[in-house]
Design a protein around this nucleic acid. Structure first.
Length: 584
RNA sequence: GCGCCCGUGGCUCAGUGGAUAGAGCACUGGCCUCCGGAGCCAGGGGUCGCAGGUUCGAAUCCUGCCGGGCGCGCCA
C-alpha cells in the first residue's frame, strides 16, 4: 500500500515537473509514513513541505497541486492537505482489511523478504575467552547476535554466525597453571594459590578430572615450585609477577607435551560447556574459528608479510610496528613483540582479512563497549590490506551491570564470583532473559537486577506478549469446542468496523517495517517495542469486543482478524527465538 | 588530558527532522454471572541536562558547556 502511494506521488510529481513547477521527480525523496494519530488519516506524506523551498511555492498550495494530479487509486478514500502542508491519505475500509488476508496467505513469511535477495553477512558474536564459563555479561551479546542473525535473515540476507576462539596467548598459560596448582592440592600439596590465577570452582572440576585421568603423575612439591618466588602482591603488578613466576616454574616441572595437553583439555572442557550454554540459550553458530589455528597454519605470518610488502611496517626497539596512524588510528601499533611473539592484534588482522576473503559483503562484529578503542586499528589494518573498511561493522554493546537488590556484583572471571549465564537462565527462564537483553538499544547500559528479574518474572513484558498469543489460541480452541467453524479461507471482512479493530489492522500492517528497521539499524529492540504494542492493541480489543458472537459473519471476520494477530505475534517472537506458547 | 557513547515523568526506558513527546513500574480510582483478571479503562505526574545555531518545523542535526559511563599496553 505504501509502495502504491509512493508510485502515485511520483506520477503526480512527474506531471508537475512537465508543467515546469518542480524539479525532476525522484521517488527516493518521497517519504510516506503510517500516521500515529488517526485524525491524520492512515498515511501521511511531507513531500510538499520538502519541495516548497525549491519550488518557491507555499507548501499548502503545492500540496494541493500534488493532490490534484494524483492518479486514480481505488483503495484511496480521500487525500487532503493538513497542518503546514502535509498530505494525509485516508484508505477505504476494505483496503485496510486486506492486510488480514495478506498475513494469513503469507503465514510464516509475513514480514520477510525472499531469502538471498540481499547480501551475504557474517556475524561474529560472543567469542568469549575459553577460560571460564559464560556469565551474564556475555548474555547480552549472545541474545543480540542470535536475534540479529534471524532478523537479517528475515530481511533477505544470507547470514552465517561465527565464534572466534581466543585459545592462544598468556591467558592459556594462566588457565593451565591454575588447573595444575589445583591438581597439586588434590595430590595433597599445600598451595599458595596466586591472586591473579583463575579462582572459579570450574578450575577445581577440571583439576579433579585431570587427577582422575592421571593420578599423581604430574605431582611436584609446591615448596620446590615456589622456591625463590616473589611475594604475591601487594598490587596487580605484584600479583602478575608472582603468577608469571609460577608459570615459568610449572613449565620447568612439566614437559612441553604435558603442558600442551593441560591447555588443550582445559580449553576443550570449557568450550564444550560454552557451546552447551549457548545452545540452551538459543544462540547457534555455523563456524568456530580457532586463533591457535591461524597462528599454526601460517595465516598470521602470511597476512603480516602482505603488510610488510606494502610498506606499512617498520622495526623499532626490536619490535615490529604497523603504521596504523597513517590510516586514521591514534598511533602506530606493535604486531610482533621484541621476543618474537605475535601480538593479539596481529592474529586479529589475519582473522579479519580471512573473514573478508571468504566473500561476505558485510562482516558484523558484536563487541563489548570496552573494545571501542580497538576498532580504529582493525579498520586501519583492513584498509592497509586494500579492503574497504566499511565492510566491517562493529557493534559495541554496553555492559549489563548486575545487581542483587542494591548490591552490585563483580563479573570478573578471575575473582570467580560472577553469575553464570546458565544460572541466570535457571532463575528467570530463557524467554524472559532473551527478551530482557534485547529490549533496550544495545548502546544503552542495562541494569540487570537478578532479584527483581526473578521476583517479578510474572511482570516481565515477555509474558504480556506471550499471553496475547496464548489467549488467541485459547479462543480458537474454544471455537472448535463449540463447533464454530474457524475460517480457513478469506471471508467477508466488512463487519470489522470497531475502532479497536481498525487500530489492530493498522498495527498489523506495520510489522514489515519493524523487521526491516531492526535489520537495517542492527537493533532488534524495535521488534520488542512493536510486539508489546501489538499485544497491547490485542488485549484492549479482547476486553472491548467479544470474538465468539452469535452473528456468523461478524464472528468469522473477527476470527480471521485474531488469527492474523496470532500469526504476526508468532513471527515476531520467532525472530527473537522466544517461544510462542499455545497455553501458559 | 585525548577519543567514543549516553543525559527524556519518582524509577526503568521507547521515540524514523514533522502535527498534542509515549510505554512499563510505582501511585489513585474503576471493570466481566460473559471467549483465560498474567488482562482492560480512567487519572495525576515532563522547561526532553544547560546555552546558542541550522530549519517552514528540533527530544532528534551542528557548536560550546555541565553531568555520567567506557577506553587510551610489546595484555587478550
Amino acid at each position: 500500500m505504501k509502495a502504491t502511494l509512493v508510485a502515485n506521488l511520483t506520477q503526480a510529481w512527474q506531471t508537475l515537473h512537465q508543467q515546469g513547477l518542480l524539479p525532476d521527480a525522484n521517488p527516493d525523496r518521497i517519504e510516506v509514513v503510517s500516521t500515529k494519530n488517526p485524525r491524520h488519516g492512515d498515511y501521511a506524506c511531507n513531500l510538499a513541505l520538502v519541495l516548497a523551498r525549491e519550488a518557491k511555492l507555499d507548501a499548502r498550495e503545492l500540496a494541493e497541486q500534488i493532490i490534484q494530479n494524483l492518479p486514480e487509486n481505488p483503495d484511496l478514500l480521500k487525500a487532503d492537505v493538513a497542518g503546514p502542508g502535509f498530505i494525509n491519505f485516508q484508505l477505504r475500509p476494505e483496503a485496510k482489511a486486506e492486510i488480514v488476508d495478506h498475513i494469513l496467505n503469507q503465514g510464516a513469511n509475513y514480514g520477510t523478504r525472499p531469502p538471498g535477495s540481499e547480501q551475504r553477512v557474517l556475524i561474529e558474536y560472543v567469542s568469549a575467552n575459553p577460560t571460564g564459563p559464560l556469565h551474564v555479561g556475555h548474555g547480552r551479546g549472545a541474545a543480540l547476535g542470535s536475534c540479529l542473525a534471524r532478523t537479517l535473515h528475515a530481511a533477505g540476507h544470507t547470514v552465517e554466525c561465527e565464534y572466534f576462539i581466543n585459545d592462544a596467548g598468556r591467558q592459556m598459560d594462566i588457565l593451565a597453571v591454575s588447573v595444575w596448582l589445583r591438581y597439586l592440592e588434590l595430590c595433597g600439596e599445600p598451595v599458595a594459590f596466586p591472586e591473579a590465577g583463575y579462582q572459579g570452582d570450574y578450575i577445581l572440576d577440571i583439576a579433579a578430572d585431570r587427577h582422575r585421568a592421571h593420578g599423581n603423575e604430574w605431582h611436584a612439591s609446591f615448596e620446590n615450585v615456589q622456591a625463590g618466588a616473589p611475594d604475591d602482591g601487594p598490587d596487580e603488578d605484584g600479583h602478575n609477577t608472582y603468577l608469571d613466576f609460577l608459570i615459568l616454574r610449572a613449565r620447568d616441572f612439566l614437559d612441553d607435551s604435558t603442558w600442551a595437553e593441560l591447555v588443550a583439555t582445559a580449553t576443550d572442557i570449557l568450550l564444550e560447556r560454552i557451546r552447551r550454554d549457548l545452545d540452551n540459550f538459543g544462540a547457534s553458530f555455523d563456524h568456530w574459528q580457532s586463533e591457535r589455528e591461524l597462528l599454526d597454519d601460517g595465516r598470521v605470518e602470511k597476512t603480516i608479510a602482505q603488510l610488510r610488502e606494502a610498506g606499512h611496517l617498520y622495526e623499532l626497539e626490536g619490535a615490529l610496528w604497523f603504521r596504523s596512524s597513517e590510516f586514521g588510528d591514534e598511533k602506530d601499533r606493535v604486531v610482533q613483540r621484541s621476543n618474537g611473539q605475535w601480538t593479539y592484534f596481529a592474529t586479529d588482522i589475519a582473522y579479519h582479512a580471512d573473514k573478508m576473503a571468504r566473500g561476505y559483503g558485510t562482516a558484523i562484529n558484536i563487541w563489548g563497549a570496552d573494545h571501542h578503542g580497538y576498532t580504529g586499528r582493525v579498520r586501519a589494518a583492513l584498509q592497509a590490506l586494500g579492503i574497504d573498511p566499511k565492510r566491517l561493522e562493529i557493534l559495541l554493546v554496553q555492559f549489563a551491570n548486575l545487581y542483587r537488590g542494591k548490591q552490585k556484583i563483580s563479573m570478573s572471571t578471575r575473582s570467580g564470583e560472577f553469575v553464570t549465564l546458565q544460572s541466570l537462565q535457571r532463575e528467570v527462564g530463557r524467554d524472559a532473559a532473551r527478551f530482557f537483553y534485547v529490549m533496550r538499544k544495545s548502546d544503552q547500559h542495562l541494569d540487570f537486577d537478578l532479584q527483581l528479574a526473578a521476583e517479578q518474572s510474572v511482570d516481565n513484558p515477555v509474558y504480556y506478549v506471550q499471553y496475547a498469543h496464548a489467549r488467541i489460541c485459547s479462543i480458537l480452541e474454544r471455537a472448535e469446542d463449540e463447533d464454530i467453524s474457524v475460517p480457513e479461507n478469506p471471508c467477508d471482512l466488512s463487519p470489522l468496523t470497531e475502532e479497536s479493530e481498525r487500530a489492530l489492522q493498522k498495527q498489523l500492517s506495520r510489522y514489515p517495517d519493524a523487521v526491516l528497521r531492526s535489520a537495517q539499524e542492527r537493533e532488534p529492540h524495535h521488534l520488542t517495542v512493536y510486539l508489546r504494542k501489538l499485544a497491547q492493541e490485542f488485549h484492549a480489543y479482547y476486553n472491548a469486543v467479544a470474538v465468539l458472537v452469535d452473528e456468523f459473519a461478524v464472528c468469522q471476520a473477527r476470527l480471521r482478524l485474531i488469527m492474523a494477530v496470532r500469526q504476526t505475534l508468532g513471527n515476531g517472537l520467532n525472530l527473537l527465538n522466544i517461544d510462542a506458547p499455545e497455553s501458559m
